[in-house]
């Protein structure tokens, strides 16, 4: 059994209103992130109050969480693209450190040793 190496990457988590989902996914595609996960119809509480999901909520009222794992150099462009959005609209984003075992899968080129 070989040793399992973990490589550090960054994860970006964004919570926004459903109507902005297309913009965020387009942004991630432009940055050439390898992929993202979308969890729809989340409920929660924030600066603008409690928001609960209902199956008949409109896009404006529903909340979605979009998560993506990217190499470190892609974090800055993504944040730069999202910053104008959060100046006007409610939502939040955070960046965490994660480790993955298949770094090529998430877009990080293997260092030539």
């Amino acid at each position: 059994m070989g040793a399992l190496t973990l490589h550090p990457m960054k994860e970006i988590r964004v919570i926004i209103a459903g109507e902005h989902r297309a913009f965020v996914t387009e942004l991630l595609d432009q940055v050439k992130a390898t992929g993202y996960t979308i969890i729809g119809n989340v409920s929660g509480k924030g600066h603008h109050g409690v928001r609960e999901a209902h199956f008949m909520s409109t896009e404006q009222e529903s909340l979605e969480m979009i998560m993506t794992v990217v190499p470190e150099e892609k974090v800055e462009p993504i944040l730069a693209g999202l910053r104008p959005l959060f100046e006007r609209h409610s939502g939040m984003m955070l960046v965490t450190d994660v480790a993955v075992s298949r770094q090529e899968y998430f877009g990080k080129k293997k260092k030539e040793s």
């Binding site: 432009q30 800055e76 462009p77």
Partner: peptide, 10 residues
């Protein structure tokens, strides 16, 4: 790359 994405946001 950053400038491009920021422009997209704007």
């Amino acid at each position: 790359e950053t400038r491009r994405m920021e422009l997209r946001g704007i």
